[in-house]
Structures are given as structure tokens and as C-alpha cells.
Amino acid sequence: SADYSSLTVVQLKDLLTKRNLSVGGLKNEWVQRLIKDDEES
């Protein structure tokens, strides 16, 4: 899986927004959300 934890907050928020995922919570929660989205898609 991609190394989301190395991305900036701005990059992570951009990815979350593009995938229609929530940008609520902490940075590590966003990373988990993106990883989960990868596994489900």
C-alpha cells in the first residue's frame, strides 16, 4: 500500500476529498481511512 504517513496534511486532505472520505479526526485516522479505502476498492 502507499506510504500515506509520509504525505503532508494538505496532500492527505486532498486525497480524502477526492475519494469523498471524511477529513475529520487526526492525521493517523486519515491514513487508516485511505488504507481501508484501498483495500475495499
Rank of each mutant, 00 (worst) to 15 (best):
S1C: 13
E39F: 12
R33T: 07
L34W: 00
R19F: 01
V31Y: 04
D3N: 07
S22E: 10
L7S: 03
T8F: 00
D38F: 06
S6F: 07
G25V: 00
L7Y: 03
K18T: 09
W30A: 05
D38T: 02
R19I: 04
T17F: 06
T8G: 08
Y4L: 04
I35Y: 07
R19W: 00
L21H: 02
G25S: 03
V23M: 11
L15R: 01
S1W: 12
L12Q: 01
L12F: 00
R33D: 05
L26C: 14
E29Y: 00
L21K: 02
A2S: 11
S22G: 11
K36E: 13
R19H: 05
L16H: 02
T8E: 07
K13P: 01
V10M: 12
E29H: 07
V23L: 15
I35S: 06
E29I: 02
D3G: 06
V9Q: 12
G25W: 01
E39C: 09
D14T: 06
R33E: 06
L16I: 06
K27D: 07
N20F: 05
W30F: 08
Q32K: 11
Y4V: 03
K36L: 11
G24H: 15
S6P: 00
Q32C: 12
N20E: 08
V31L: 11
N20D: 09
D14E: 13
L7I: 04
T8W: 00
N20Y: 03
T8D: 12
N20R: 09
K27S: 07
T17C: 13
E29V: 00
D38P: 00
E40S: 12
L16Q: 02
R33W: 00
S41L: 13
D38N: 03
K36H: 10
D3W: 10
V23I: 12
S41V: 11
N28T: 08
T8H: 05
S1I: 13
R19S: 04
L15Q: 05
Y4I: 03
S41F: 11
S1V: 13
K18G: 07
E29M: 02
L21Q: 01
V23Y: 08
L15S: 02
K18F: 04
L7E: 04
E40Y: 10
R19K: 06
S5Q: 12
V31R: 00
S6H: 11
K13V: 13
A2D: 12
K36D: 13
T17R: 14
D14L: 05
L15M: 11
G25I: 01
K18C: 09
K27V: 13
G25P: 02
K18I: 10
K13T: 08
E39V: 10
R19T: 03
Q11T: 05
T8K: 00
V23S: 10
V9A: 11
E29A: 05
S6I: 08
L7H: 05
L7G: 04
V31D: 04
G25D: 07
